[in-house]
Design a protein around this nucleic acid. Structure first.
Lengths: 205, 205
DNA sequence: GCGGGTCTCATCCTTTCGGCTGAGACCCAC
DNA sequence: GTGGGTCTCAGCCGAAAGGATGAGACCCGC
C-alpha cells in the first residue's frame, strides 16, 4: 500500500528535491504547492495521506495556519512540518495546530521517508534535538503577552525609546512604562535589551 | 559543450532537488558536498566550471570562506551563491570573496540554470531586488567595527548590562562605555537597543 | 620617530530607564 | 454585580545609560 503525499514549499528546488527523494514504491507524491492557500485547495481535492509542509511560505499564510486549515479538512491529512529553523514558538504553534510532527530540513532523506510513514500511521515525530526542547517548553510554558504588550515589544526591538513608543501608540510614556514593566515580569528580565533577546530566542518576535 | 557543476549545501534534500533540476544536456552535476571543507577538497579534484554554494553550511566554515578558498584554486571555478536569506553583510562578503553572483533560493529553476551558464561565462549575477541593495551598500559602506567592539556588541545583544560586559571582558565599566560610545558613533545610533537593531539589520550579528 | 588607530581608564553631568505603588475605566465571565 | 484581566495614567526614587572630554599605553606603518 502506497502513502500519498502533498508537498508544500515555496522553493521550487526544494520541492523537486523532495519529489526525487520521496518517490519510491511505498510513497507517491501526488501534488505540489508553493503557498498555503494552494496547499489547502489541493489537499481538498487530492486527499493526500500526508502533507509535508514548510513553516515559512513566503508572502501568504504561514505553515501554522496552513496546518490548522488542513487538519480541519475531512478526511484530514496528517501534517508533517519540515523546516530549516527551530524557533520554539513555531514548534509549539505547529503542534497545537495539529501537526503530527516536526523535522529539520538537514536530516537524511531516509529520516523524512520514515517520518512520513510514521505520520501516516498516526505517530508523533520530532527531531531528537527538538523533542527535548519541546518538552522543556511544555514544562515551562511560553509567557503569554497581550497584544498591546507585543506591540510595545516590537517597537522596543527596533530600538525605540519609551517616548518614541508612546508617540507611536498615542499613549503617554507612563503607559508605555507600565506595559514594559509587565513585559519584564512575564519574561523574567530586567532590561529592555534582555527582553528583546529572550523574545527573539523563544520566537516571540 | 557542457558546463560542470559542483553542488554545496548542507541539506541533502536541496542537493537532490538541484541535481534533478540542473542535470540537463548542457549542465552536468559532477559532485555534491555538504560542507565547505568537503567542497574545497572536491573542487580541487573535479575542477568544476561552476560551484553552486549555499551561504549557510551548518557547523563548519561558512559560504564566504568557502568561496574565498575556492577562488584561490587553480583553475578557479566560478562560484555562484544560492541562499535563502539576504543579509546585506553576507552579500557584500561573498562578492568580496570573489563570488560571481548571488541568487535567492526561491527563484525558478530556469533562473538558476541561466545563472550558472552566465557565471561560467564570467558574468555577474544578482537577483534584481538584491542588486539595488548591494549598490546602495556600496554607496553607504558598512561601518567597520573593531574586533573588540564586535565583542561588546555581541554581549550587548544578549541583554548584558555594561557591568556584566565589563566582567565578561575583564575590563572596567569605563572601558565598556568607551567602546559602546564608539559603536554608537559608527552605527549612527544613540541607544543600545537601536544599536542591536541596526547591527542585526545589516548582518553584523 | 611620529602620526594614527586601538584599547584602556577616568571624571562630570544629564537623561533615560526601571522599580514601586496606586488608581480609574473598561470589558468580560462566572 | 463582583472579580479579574487589560489598558490607561501618575509620582517618586535610585540605578543605569549615555554625552563630553581627556589621557596614557601599545602597536603598526610611513
Amino acid at each position: 500500500m502506497t502513502t500519498t503525499v502533498l508537498l508544500v514549499d515555496d522553493h521550487p528546488v526544494v520541492r523537486s528535491g523532495l519529489r526525487s527523494v520521496l518517490d519510491t514504491d511505498t510513497l507517491k507524491v501526488v501534488g505540489e504547492a508553493a503557498t498555503g492557500e494552494e496547499a489547502i485547495a489541493l489537499a481538498a481535492h487530492l486527499h493526500p495521506d500526508v502533507v509535508l509542509c514548510d513553516l515559512r511560505l513566503g508572502a501568504g499564510i504561514d505553515g501554522i495556519r496552513t496546518t490548522a486549515a488542513l487538519r480541519a479538512l475531512d478526511p484530514a491529512p496528517a501534517v508533517l512540518i519540515l523546516t530549516t529553523f527551530d524557533r520554539d514558538a513555531e514548534i509549539l504553534g505547529a503542534i497545537e495546530a495539529g501537526a503530527a510532527g516536526y523535522l529539520l530540513k538537514d536530516v537524511a532523506p531516509e529520516v523524512i521517508i520514515d517520518g512520513i510513514r510514521r505520520a501516516h500511521a498516526g505517530e508523533t515525530i520530532l527531531s531528537p534535538d527538538l523533542a527535548a526542547r519541546v518538552l522543556k517548553g511544555m514544562r515551562n510554558p511560553l509567557p503569554k503577552l497581550t497584544e498591546r504588550e507585543i506591540e510595545v515589544l516590537r517597537l522596543m526591538a527596533t530600538g525605540a525609546a519609551n517616548r518614541e513608543i508612546a508617540r507611536s501608540l498615542f499613549v503617554t510614556e507612563a503607559t508605555v512604562k507600565s506595559h514594559i514593566a509587565h513585559i519584564f515580569t512575564k519574561l523574567d528580565v530586567d532590561s529592555r535589551s534582555r527582553a528583546i533577546h529572550v523574545a527573539q530566542q523563544v520566537g516571540l518576535l
